[in-house]
Design a protein around this nucleic acid. Sequence first.
DNA 1: AATCTAATCAACCGCCTTACG
DNA 2: TCGTAAGGCGGTTGATTAGAT
Length: 376
Amino acid sequence: MGRQPCCDKVGLKKGPWTAEEDQKLITFILNNGHCCWRAVPKLAGLLRCGKSCRLRWTNYLRPDLKRGVLSDSEEQLIIDLHAHLGNRWSKIASHLPGRTDNEIKNYWNTHIKKKLKRMGIDPVTHRSISDQVPDMNYHSAESKTFPTVLGMPNTEDYLAPKLDLNPYNKKEMVRINNNNDDAAKEASSRSNESELTEEEKSVDSVKEAGQLSASEGYGVELLPAAEAHNFENFVGTSPSLDFFSGNSPLFHQQGSPLLRVPDEEGLLEFSNDIIDCANIQDPTSSELMKDEYTVNSCLSSFDYNREIQTPICSTAAEIQWTQEMLVTESLLPTPETSMQESLWQHDSDDAFPGWDGDILDHDINIANCCFSSAFY
DNA sequence: AATCTAATCAACCGCCTTACG
DNA sequence: TCGTAAGGCGGTTGATTAGAT
């Protein structure tokens, strides 16, 4: 048994719409709106199913549609958005006024895909086809697979001038705010895992977790502590960062050793010692939280997130934390929020929105950029 | 001119999500 | 909490058109 058809199709017309049908639908919707698509065909005198009417209206008859060939800038925007959103055509379409998801999908399949292939770029991964070997060490200086987002300025352009990509090298990933840094470094210099102590393995697993989470889109890239502490050095950054920051810093570095998050009853404070990178791949993990319920509440509410205006960051752990919250989506005000929504998958019902899909390496970097820019 | 092939895009299909009783 | 209906989405189909032979 298959699924029941969306409506009784006996006697209903299929195939291309006639001008007369179009006119009936337009007239009806302009006069009455469409409270219920299923009722529309009956009321409009059409022998079509409601679904068909909706499709015809949204993809073809809507008065706000922009017909005609997509411009170069629209095409570029589609490529950029696709790099971050994948085949989420409706999401992509929402960034192109007057264009429909169907139109963009068709355009992608018939034009852009071929164009990218001709350019030697995989239209799925947006990476060079010759560099398709998975490389977990994607930030290493040796890596040639640093992702390029078409149409976007090179990701490095977003980075603050003194932010060297090399520190993101897996080997240099350190447990944030943890005094096992030395052990970690020493351990990572050894290749044979059997040589590692339990503590070292633990540190290594943290790094593994960071890498895994980054590649699977469920966490954040571990921020090298040394670099994180150096954010103050980035003051006076490149103008391109204004693209994200809008010159309205949300975060301020001060001397506080605590991460402070506004709570319904005041200000929640998280001391460094409870922020354990071991759990960083799952930001909702209870071990990461001083008060799991409260923090989860903070993070799960879109509206409430908006009220988190000025977390105060000074340590790597705090910055890491802030970064996580920033990329959950709502911390950036419009228009940054809309930009961020184009970069991050948004599901406001998710306890940790923005982490619900495959997030690519460059997403992580752009998040870092958003995050960094928010400091200026 | 006829035929074949490729390209295009409107429309359909079926699954998933959401709203509601 | 569950079931159902409706809307929405992404993949696919197929009719039409354009270009090549």
